[in-house]
Design a protein around this nucleic acid. Structure first.
Lengths: 217, 217, 217, 217
DNA sequence: CATGAATGAGTTTTCATTCAT
DNA sequence: GATGAATGAAAACTCATTCAT
């Protein structure tokens, strides 16, 4: 154990898979820190400890690279949710676990979230990727809501209503998550619980037929 | 008659205030269309039908210009909400009107909304401005929520809870607005009502003390 | 006349037309000197005594710029030929003048010739422009050949034969011109005369019906 | 039988000469397709089905490689002509065979021809190589022309005249070849015959002393 | 008041070339 | 013998910003 070779960090000639992952991680950090446009390939290469041509050789153009980041983080996010939801649990429990998974991801991967939400949502070429991701999440959430309504004795809800409610819920979650990402001292589980209550009680009332009516036109 | 003032159409030489407004409006459009970084001063000048040096002379650097846009649109948004809310109305009516005001602004000024909300891209030098403005909006919404709760007989809610709920509400509203924009056949008031219900019923239950509790962990 | 202002070369703020011409001329020189790919926009800007962004502002991309060069020099070449050919002259005289115009241009505008022939002929995006230019020249030459044949008592030649002969003649001329461009000491008129003889006598014999026949398959 | 030589298909580990030839052929194709500057060593290595370092190990730098291509194709072209010309044939027959050999090479090795001829792009470091090679070709053609003239009873022609005629002939041939490539329905031998006639009759007349004289200037 | 002309600095991207295995 | 990994250098193109008129 003693007098071993002074282990310099294994600098050069790593296998492709390793380097690619290093680059992706560096890219996520830099995109989150600067935003897509302000991020420079130079800075990303620096952050990855590699030269720029390697980034291009392995991951392609800046757009390709960003898309790869979005896909990676998107997949991680989805997995964070899906991993904890189990079909054999009661509906409310499913929703609760999904929310915790979501907020847990945001709390633990601020950078990934910034890439997905603050960078990609608005930008033309990537908006589609994000929309697709959000669509998949909405689908999952709508399914959970539907089962939840049935379970709590409601009549079967029309699908458009469920989808719209899911959009609202996902939007609310995104917004809260965004706030969470800027407040590291906040507790993700607390946010999850608050939103769960909001959602669960409101949705239950609403979908069970109680309605608020505007008193005037 | 000869040598009289050559009456070129008085297109140009507008008073400063008018020109500044033209520029700001053009800038809002371009920033919304492209995002801050991708927007070029050239395109903004073009959109305003004026030459670039004028933009610099009147509104200063690109950063200054963006800040001016944020302030203008933020003020407009706040006014859209405040203008329709009247303190002497019942709390739920206030919330309903506020929501419609908000929805109305987002629907009618998507560009302004994009500038205010979508540009929350992290560490730009004016991120503080945006954060402050979003803070003020959330504050207003939180205030409405709080009064609504009190009015409907709830106990006074803690402020962080209200703020978080306001974030959720704003996020839900934006998400629904996005969905609306993609579904022109849908009725905005229907969406507004659905969100109102969601909010009102959920908030009422929640803040009146009923709580959903996780059954485990 | 005396004590005039020491006329520093009028450096800056030239009107657009002048600057554009300066740039085009510089570009022709650099493209001729280095070839399309090896020519850098930096060097072109330097040669024009202007900064790179001006080149892009006025003439567009490197491709655009090159195309502009090709068009300018192509037009000049065509004009060099057309300007000296007069329809009321005998056919052989027309051909002779056309050849002299062609070789005269090449002798006087080596750079333009290099741009047209050595750079543009092979390169995919510009080959079409050159093909069109060559087509127009061939057309003119075929017309001259046709009238020449008629004038010297031949039967009317079939058009494909004329076109093919014109292609051969133009190709021959291009090749000789290319040689000429590399031998500044050579006399363009001498080359013109030699090719004229070659063409005129050969074409006359050929088109009057005399044929060389291979003795074996 | 166990532990015998693991018979991987003997694809790789070819002897050096074979590999070198593969590389040269690939390089010729790529240089012809893209031109010298636009051709990348990557594409050449790919086309040869080998890795880049091998190209460098066997054939040296890009310049070296191009020079090798020029030499190979030049030799092949010369051989195509020389192989079919036999000194004991009549002069016109020699010229005819030479022409057909030339045409045959250009038709069958357009890539080689492009490398040799179209890349005459001025001042590259190996312009000298190309010029030398073209010079040798022209020399051969000029020789044939000269012998043809003598054989048909003309006075000995001056060498510059022959050289210039050879340039014209080569240029005419290339131009016709280009035209042929665009008109697949045309008969190559027909074109060859037409050019032979053009050349033969014109040259005979010209070099036997008949001259066209400009009537003016 | 208003603008065409001009540029320094920085961005993405590519390429010939070389090591270490 | 053969190659995947790696890079320095340079090229095309853009942009915020400023004079001189």
């Amino acid at each position: 154990m003693l007098a071993s070779v002074p282990s310099r960090p294994t600098f050069k000639r790593l296998p492709r898979a390793v380097r690619e992952q290093q680059m992706l991680d560096a890219a996520v950090r830099v995109f989150a820190r600067r935003g897509f446009h302000a991020a420079s390939m130079d800075e990303i290469a620096d952050e990855a400890g590699i030269s720029k041509p390697m980034v291009y050789a392995y991951l392609g153009s800046k757009d390709d690279l960003f898309r790869a980041c979005v896909n990676q983080e998107g997949t991680r996010l989805l997995e964070s949710i899906v991993a904890v939801v189990r079909d054999d649990l009661p509906a409310d429990e499913q929703l609760w676990r999904g929310l915790r998974g979501f907020f847990g991801f945001v709390g633990a991967h601020r950078e990934g979230w910034a890439v997905l939400y603050r960078q990609a949502s608005g930008r033309q070429p990537f908006a589609a990727d994000i929309a697709a991701l959000r669509g998949r999440i909405v689908e999952v959430v709508a399914g959970m809501l539907g089962r939840a309504v049935l379970a709590s004795g409601g009549t079967e809800a029309r699908e458009p209503d469920l989808t719209a409610s899911a959009y609202a819920l996902v939007g609310a979650a995104e917004s809260v998550a965004d706030w969470l990402a800027d407040h590291p001292e906040a507790d993700p589980d607390h946010s999850a619980a608050r939103l769960m209550n909001f959602t669960w009680l409101g949705a239950r009332q609403l979908l069970q037929g109680e309605l608020w009516q505007p008193s005037s036109a």
